[in-house]
Design a protein around this nucleic acid. Structure first.
Lengths: 330, 330
DNA sequence: CTGAAAGCGCTAACAG
DNA sequence: CTGTTAGCGCTTTCAG
């Protein structure tokens, strides 16, 4: 292994000079700098991360705790992770993917000085990890927005505003009775947060617009079609659907198209999901993009700022925007 | 920060005793061990990862380079990552998600002693990273199977056997003319490997069974339906489809159902994809599961064995198996 | 503008 | 069975 001492010897300078050339923390003559940099590339030197973190008390690594139970909105999670990783790279950080999804994993990473900061996804409202994070003296940011008072900075999509935007759009298209097809029942319960926020915005907007709106939990499987049937059986006058359920979306779309084909107007579907998911669903008219990658990037930015300046940045919600669907006419 | 010295003092023993209690590398009297362990939990001590890696020359971290360009078979990738992470945890390793998808990232992690070993996904046949890995003195395992001589151990799904199995199944269902709807054209070119292996198995099995088979590239979007139309226009007698394209799958299925409805027999679709993807596609009859999580776990096991024993484990291909689709009758 | 040297917290000889 | 101690490779005072 090539060490800083090898570089120093090759360049004919002292160890500390090499260190300062790398960190830029004091001025170095151009000539010396050149010699050192040459030696570094010639020898293919990379500083030993452990030694560095031992001496400097910082790792340049951000710990990321992502929900890895497969099956739940994988696209969104993956894209958020992509955003995190990409942005982290830009800012010179690496990402330690925490194995284990509990407080223990967070403590281990923090107490063991494996990371400088923690990024935690998929936090529930009364999640015990929130308290753990508060006790740790490592900066941390949540991706999501647990209900209640925020003790830890958060980044999320503004689901409430998305509810409003969706209703505005459906009303603009002429629909007067609309339904929100949402997350599976167990998710609705678990994450009080985002499903609730969406429903709140949706219902408030319906009321403000004087249109009828209803909210329905929905399984993420082929059984989603039954949910649609049930909703329409309850109220056959519904013509506009907002769908926020990645797994159910194709089934809901297929069922609605089928219904449209058998007579009556084809109902409009507005999906709330990442753009590429929307693109992959046949027969989708319109969508509101969940800017998943941007959320990851924003969270990373926030954490880097925390690390740099030590400020407490509070909550940041990214605004929704309409995106075209496959058959978008906009 | 609580250090090993604090623990030693609290337990009234020397630093090295604490170290040996943790590592188990020498025998300790039960009484001493108890005192030390108590002190450790009381103080909430976790050893400083950097200091440890500096002294022991090992990190207990595995570097994982995953393709994060969103849009390509996210489910498969995510599930592999899940398998890797889960298995790594069981074996006491953490996962450093490498930011950057080139040789540089691998070198940085290895040279900087950030990881003990490297796991690389999505390797192409003439991928420059293969040479990089060979030069590094860190153990590494590829997830995938680049064409040519294997210099680095590999773990992958046996796509060739999957081709055979698919044909067997379609023939068993009575189909005599079948088509493989595969990856997008650019993927077919890029990864010579897995698309080729699947096609090879598929065509060989067709020949062995005396049935007509053809292979078709397919875009992962709504335009997939056109591919189906084209295939059927070329040969209207085709009744069996093997689909290996997560994005196209719902569109292909929808189109085939539509065609079936307009007269003629509804063609059979056999999908090659993770089980939960198969489950989410309306109208799918049958599928062969890509055991994505198992692949990740197997790769991790292989790397851990490499790390432990230093053997060179060669290539490991996981066998295919039939799984039910939504409407499976098997 | 540059060097020398004191740690950072831990592991693993070496020495009982 | 336990203690003492010499590094691991780097950052950062402190001294020029």
């Amino acid at each position: 292994m090539v060490t800083i001492a090898d570089v120093a010897q090759a360049a004919g300078v002292s160890i500390s000079t090499v260190s300062y050339v790398m960190s830029g923390k004091r001025s170095i003559s151009q000539e010396t700098r050149d010699r050192v940099e040459l030696a570094i590339t010639n020898l293919g030197f990379s500083p030993h991360a452990g030694a560095r973190s031992l001496a400097s008390r910082s790792t340049n690594v951000i710990g990321l705790q992502a929900p890895l139970r497969s099956g739940v909105d994988v696209h969104v999670i993956m894209q958020i992770v992509t955003g995190v990783v990409t942005q982290a790279r830009k800012r010179g950080y690496d990402i330690l993917l925490l194995t284990g999804d509990d407080s223990k994993a967070l403590e281990r990473a923090a107490r063991g000085s494996m990371v400088d900061a923690l990024l935690v996804m998929d936090v529930e409202s009364d999640d015990p990890r929130i308290e753990t994070l508060a006790e740790l003296r490592h900066p941390s940011v949540l991706i999501g927005l647990p209900a209640g008072r925020q003790t830890i900075p958060c980044v999320d999509f503004d689901f409430e505003a998305a509810g409003w935007l969706a209703v505005d759009r459906l009303v603009e298209l002429g629909h007067r009775r609309i339904a929100l097809i949402g997350s599976p029942r167990e998710v609705m319960k678990r994450h009080t947060s985002y499903a609730d926020r969406l429903a709140r915005g949706f219902l408030a907007a319906c009321e403000a617009n004087g249109v009828g709106g209803s909210v329905h939990a929905c399984p993420s499987s082929a059984k989603a079609a039954e949910t649609v049937d049930g909703v329409l059986a309850d109220d056959p006058t519904i013509t506009g659907f907002l769908v926020h359920n990645e797994g159910a979306l194709p089934h809901v779309a297929a069922r609605l198209i089928e219904i449209g084909r058998h007579g009556g107007d084809e109902p409009a579907i507005l999906a709330l999901c990442p753009e590429d998911v929307a693109r992959s669903v046949p027969g989708l008219t319109d969508s509101i993009a969940v800017p998943a990658e941007a959320i990851g990037a924003a969270a990373t930015d926030m954490i880097c700022e925390l690390l740099a300046s030590g400020t407490r940045p509070g909550v940041r919600l990214l605004p929704p925007a309409l995106a075209g669907g496959v058959l978008a006419t906009t």
